[in-house]
Every structure is written in C-alpha cells, then in structure tokens.
C-alpha cells in the first residue's frame, strides 16, 4: 500500500464524499416530501390523483436508478430539456426514493389500530388534530425502521451518479485506477469512504429503532 499516494488523494475523496452526502441528503429529504404527499393522496382517497400516485410508485420501484438517470441526463436534453448533472441526480434519487418512502409511510399508517382513530374522534378532536396528536406519532414510530433502511439504500444508490459525470466517490476511484493504476489504494479508500458515510447512519437508525421498540408501541415490520 502506498500511504503517500493515499494521503495525497485523500482531499479528493473527502470532497467527493461531501458531494455524495449533499446530494444524498437532498434526495432523502425530497423523497420524504414526495412520499408523504403520495401517502396522503392515497389515504385521503383523492380521486384520479390517487391512481396517478399508485402508478408512479409502481414505475419508480420497478426500474433502476441508472436507467432513470440516463433518461434524464442523456435523453431529455435531446428534446430541449437541459438539466444540470446535480439536478438530474437529485431528481432521479427523489423519483426513486419518493416511491419507497411512500410505501414506508403507508405501512406505518396501516399499522395504527383503527380504534385509535375512533378514540381520537370520540374525544372531539378535529381530523387534523387527530392526525397530528394521535395517528402520525404512532405511524412514524412504526415507519422509522423502514425510513432508515430507505435512507441507507438511497445513499448507496448515489454510487451511480458518476455515470452522469458527477465527481462522486466512484468517479474519483475510477479516475485514480485509470490514471495511476493504484487499484488497491483507490478501492480501499473508496470502501472506507462509503463505510464512513453509511455505518454511522445505519447504527443511528438501529439505535432509534431499538428505543422506539422499547417504548412499546407500533408493530415490528
């Protein structure tokens, strides 16, 4: 192992990890928003829109992110829609993640006993108050493990961003392999970088999950 080499190129990895984290975080947050909207549309049984949301979820869940990104980045400009690589990446990640988050939230909502809803209504809470104080806290607690798993999944999926010319961790590693043939060093740093990003996230969510389970409500999924 050439430690000198590794020290020299460490800043490139740090910068690339920053990009992964920034785009990943944006994608995860937007996914939660899209997921919440889809979930709401389906539970409120909004006509037509609910079917659209259902179709979107099926499309996004059954196609690879890489193909979605190729369409956005290489396809759309040909018909006059030019998006920056970063916009494409976040859009693609949100398109994919929104569907997964919608499913996580839906299973959380479904796990709340219907009698809880009735009990809240019987206390004279308005539907909005009931959602806020009674339903959502329980649904979210149940959905947290799935949301956490989705967050880890989405960060992992960012590894294809190099395909649309974003200088992410994969891009840097591939570059170093191609230019200097320092394969071992490049791959080691690549693996360590992803572990550094994902291990804390994964551990944080499993701790949160354990605490929620300890609180004793919500069913295990």
């Amino acid at each position: 192992m050439d430690t000198e080499f590794m020290r020299k190129f460490l800043p490139m990895y740090v910068k690339a990890a920053g990009l992964t984290l920034r785009l990943g975080a944006a994608g995860i947050l937007l996914s939660l928003v899209v997921g919440a909207v889809c979930c709401w549309v389906r539970f409120a049984k909004v006509p037509v829109v609910r079917r659209v949301a259902g179709a979107y979820i099926e499309l996004a869940r059954n196609t690879p992110l890489l193909v979605q990104l190729f369409f956005l980045y290489f396809g759309l400009p040909k018909v006059g829609i030019k998006l920056s690589a970063e916009t494409c990446a976040v859009t693609g990640l949100t398109f994919l993640g929104g569907a997964y988050m919608a499913e996580a939230l839906r299973s959380g909502m479904e796990a709340v006993d219907p009698v809880q809803n009735e009990a809240g209504l019987c206390l004279g809470l308005t539907p909005a108050q009931n959602l806020r104080f009674v339903i959502l806290p329980q649904a979210l607690a149940t959905a947290i493990p799935a949301i956490g798993a989705n967050a880890v999944f989405l960060i992992k999926e960012t590894s294809v961003f190099s395909a649309v010319a974003l200088v992410d961790l994969m891009y840097v590693a591939k570059d170093l392999i191609g230019m200097y043939y320092k394969t071992d060093e490049a791959l080691l740093m690549l693996t360590v970088a992803y572990l550094a990003l994902l291990l804390p996230l994964s551990i944080a969510f499993s701790l949160l999950e354990r605490r929620l389970r300890h609180a004793g409500f919500g069913r295990a999924v």
Partner: peptide
Amino acid sequence: RIVPQLVLLFL
C-alpha cells in the same frame, strides 16, 4: 447491506 453493490463490483 452497507457497501453499495457498485463498490462491491469494483472491488
């Protein structure tokens, strides 16, 4: 679960 499949492919 934690290492992206693409990283495994590269490895």
